[in-house]
């Protein structure tokens, strides 16, 4: 697990490689969940949600090849592409059929929100999603105790308090906390390298 990120190519490089037949499957594996997640967060609960997800996925896949790391962060770019894809989709649906009452209300709200806010929301959710994803992996790397120390420190508990709760010395609390923290950052980075396109 821990070694995997080292050898794995970034998704984009794989997307460019015609011989890599699983690149699309893996891409869907990572991004489909996220897009569902965003739509849920936006309380976008349309009948055609699955279609919408597929549509956004396709647009992303196509656009991945145009992403230029020099011009900006991946997450910013992602926010923009996803927002555009969603807007396009609703435009398309509107011409094809009448939106349901509640769908329309929702689309109105989204439309009324400044584009930059929507994009920022998507961006934030992406960060949230990626870090949580990495956190899940961390459970396979560290003992329960190390994770507990880290978790309590995330809650803002001082080292002394953590030491008392977990019956550890202060020094081992510091050591464990720093070790997990350092490894976690590395893991987030690994997930980013694997899932995002960072050149």
């Amino acid at each position: 697990m821990g070694e995997e990120w080292n050898t794995r190519k970034s998704l984009l490089r794989r997307a460019k490689d015609p011989s890599d037949e699983e690149a699309w499957t893996d891409f869907v594996g990572y991004y489909e969940n996220f897009i569902y997640h965003i739509l849920r967060r936006m309380e976008l609960n349309t009948e055609e949600c699955d279609d919408l997800v597929q549509d956004i996925l396709l647009k992303l896949w196509k656009n991945l090849k145009t992403y230029d790391a020099e011009k900006g962060r991946f997450r910013t770019w992602l926010g923009r592409v996803v927002r555009h894809a969603a807007y396009d989709y609703f435009d398309k649906v509107k011409t094809r059929r009448k939106l349901l009452e509640e769908e329309r209300a929702m689309v109105e709200i989204i439309r009324a929100t400044p584009a930059s806010d929507v994009e920022r929301l998507i961006e934030e959710e992406w960060m949230q999603y990626m870090t949580s994803f990495a956190l899940e992996r961390l459970h396979n790397i560290f003992s329960g105790e190390a994770i507990n120390v880290f978790s309590l420190s995330l809650d803002g508990l001082p080292a002394d308090e953590i030491a008392k709760q977990l019956n550890l010395t202060r020094d081992s609390v510091y050591t464990l906390k720093n070790r997990v923290k350092a490894r976690f950052i590395k893991e987030v980075r690994a997930v980013m390298d694997e899932v995002e396109y960072n050149g």
Binding site: R75, M127, Q128, T131, S132, A134, I185, K186, V188, R189
Partner: peptide, 13 residues
């Protein structure tokens, strides 16, 4: 989703 770890994204960047 664990909202406490979001900031680590920036650190990882």
């Amino acid at each position: 989703i664990d909202p406490r770890v979001k900031e680590f994204y920036r650190l990882a960047e």
